[in-house]
Design a protein around this nucleic acid. Structure first.
Lengths: 121, 121
DNA sequence: CTCAATGTTCGGTAATCCTAGAACATTCAT
DNA sequence: ATGAATGTTCTAGGATTACCGAACATTGAG
């Protein structure tokens, strides 16, 4: 029997914290990196993006790392479909947990010019 | 001549970034630690606190470290008077740079129960 | 089945961070 | 001058982080 690197065969399983378990310092840490902040800004239109659409020059494994930090902090949700996985902001969950915060945060970030394009430089 | 550890004799000098140099990821990082977030919440009434009033059980040198991170990110201002130094939030500067953000952030943090008392447990 | 596309995991390196004890600096009170 | 109070700097260990290349896993297309 060969060893397995992934922890499941069927559809890939991702950990997402329950809404009430989303904690503020962790969210702030997740967004305290310019690349990750840019990703969040890019998704703030409510849309979905694949890792490939979000990252650019950075290595795939690095992108996985950043998306994992955002996901485990409760900022992102991932939905896998075929070979792709679509990332989107957990806007409603964040809004209910930290009313008014995420909008302010992402609009400030957008005003400051952060975009996932930052990952492409 | 003996070596000196401090870089000045007269009043202690602290670095404070100019308002326009305050950058969002750095602020978010500064607030992404429960101890530091608690300190910010504690100061959100606009008052001044000394390191001793803010920290509790944690070592003085650790407190200096946290206050330095907050200060260099532009979150705090330090004013030294005698043997004490009074820390206060740079509310106006933060508000002008990130309108509406700090209020939302600190009220969310307060709602979640963060206090500088966290440093005392 | 085989291949290409998309991500993940692993292993490793360099950098940064958290924490704290010890020594030092500055100021004030006596 | 001496000592107490307050805070900083130095040093160091342990933990975490960012980043990437290589190998692997999963899915869909041909």
């Amino acid at each position: 029997m060969r060893g397995r690197l992934c922890d499941s065969y069927g559809v890939r399983r991702y950990f997402h914290p329950d809404p009430e378990d989303i904690c503020l310092p962790e969210v702030l840490f997740a967004l305290s990196d310019a690349t990750r902040l840019g990703i969040a800004v890019d998704l703030s239109d409510g849309g979905e993006r694949t890792a490939g659409e979000l990252g650019g020059d950075i290595a795939k494994s690095t992108m996985t790392h950043h998306l994992k930090i955002l996901r485990e902090a409760g900022v992102l949700r991932v939905r896998s479909e075929g070979t792709r996985c679509y990332n989107s902001l957990r806007l409603a969950d964040l809004e209910s947990r930290f009313p008014g915060l995420v909008d302010q945060l992402l609009s400030s970030a957008a005003r400051c010019g952060y975009t996932s394009a930052d990952a492409r430089r």
